[in-house]
Design a protein around this nucleic acid. Structure first.
Lengths: 211, 211
DNA sequence: GTCTATAATTAGATAGAC
DNA sequence: GTCTATCTAATTATAGAC
């Protein structure tokens, strides 16, 4: 009870609101997700969102910050367990991990793809705050692979959108996949098989010399 | 003036509304695109949409019908020019054509990805009316390639979302690509290079024996 | 910190003139 | 076939009680 910080009451509420916001913003887009719907999913009343966040736009930013933060943490944690492993194996495992994260958190690429369609303030902020660091990590990985002859010398813009599009879009489009093919893309076996394919595609496919 | 059909006045207006609807529905989602914004882009007043279409939902359906119709026509026209060409070459050229169409018409995958995120009436209708025939053509192509040893025997759900995600998402996300990488994905050289990569990925990459 | 009540704005749709 | 004017419902945000 000798608290340095005043009791964090309402923190669980804030979390519930963020989770609901992430789910609805990612599925329905910024305009399509009403603050009433978010509040209902979080189990609170609509005006409470304006107590915790200054407005809809700031709620969106907070939700996106939270999601990218979890992504960065997840990738870094995976990487830190790979000290001493060779570069090519690291690259393969990180691509795998990216696919697995996209399956466990389809909100990430749902929101990225949503906002990326339209130039404007939200896209500018998202790119400069969160996407560019991600992209630069990917480019550095492409360069290490290319230096080892494991990747054709192709402009990184191609590789980045090839990799992310191939790796994430089944999970973004999961309801369609389910209805169209009868397959649940979130099933662990599907995720694993998909990750294998993406790794093979990126790292074996564009190689001049075979592994 | 000896018209069989009464003068098609208002047909150009209908076209302008459909084009505007396609652009805004694809970028902003169904809920995010207001009928007022669509009307303004089409250069007409908002109530006129209700003269030409029974409501917002029917306008959306008409716009989606129109877009898929153009896609089917484009693919069939390309295919009909390839009589006598061997199956593997046909597959490569059709994949190329898919990528080129996705660059020329980013609305197609913008709308597909948008609606595929959320189960519901619009997704059900779109899948059964338009997506399933597309998917079945793709599966038939995968089977022909697999029979010739040009494709690993992988479940079609993987291949379909790998192919479409890798081929279309740069164009879906064009504003982000431009801001993030400085590259305009709609430039003809970019489209051509991207199509080459997708073809190599799909058809060479997953092959056990090399071409 | 969370609620009820409500203000101000914007949404999709209709009525009716031309 | 297209417009102006307007209705009803839904949206985000605020005020103020508890």
């Amino acid at each position: 009870m000798s608290a340095v910080v005043s009791r964090p009451a309402g923190l669980e509420t804030r979390r519930a609101i963020l989770d609901a916001a992430l789910d609805l913003f990612s599925k329905r887009s910024f305009d399509g997700a009403s603050t009433r719907a978010i509040a209902e999913l979080a189990g609170v009343t609509q005006p409470l969102l304006n107590y915790h966040f200054a407005g809809k736009e700031e709620l969106w930013r907070a939700a996106v910050d939270d999601l990218f933060e979890r992504f960065r943490t997840s990738m870094q944690r995976r990487l830190s367990g790979l000290r001493g492993v060779d570069e090519v194996t690291i690259a393969k495992l990180m691509v795998r991990h990216f696919v697995e994260f996209s399956a466990a958190n389809p909100q990430l690429y749902r929101i990225i793809m949503q906002e990326s369609k339209r130039a404007g303030g939200r896209l500018d902020w998202m790119v400069e705050t969160h996407v560019r660091p991600m992209y630069e990590n990917a480019v550095a990985m492409f360069e290490r692979l290319a230096a080892r002859g494991k990747l054709a010398p192709v402009a990184p813009a191609h590789l980045y959108y090839l990799l992310t599009g191939a790796g994430a879009s089944v999970f973004v489009m999961a309801p369609e996949c389910q209805r169209l093919t009868g397959v649940d893309p979130f099933a662990p076996e599907f995720v694993a098989a998909h990750a294998d394919l993406v790794v093979d595609l990126l790292i074996r496919a564009t190689t001049e010399e075979s592994a």
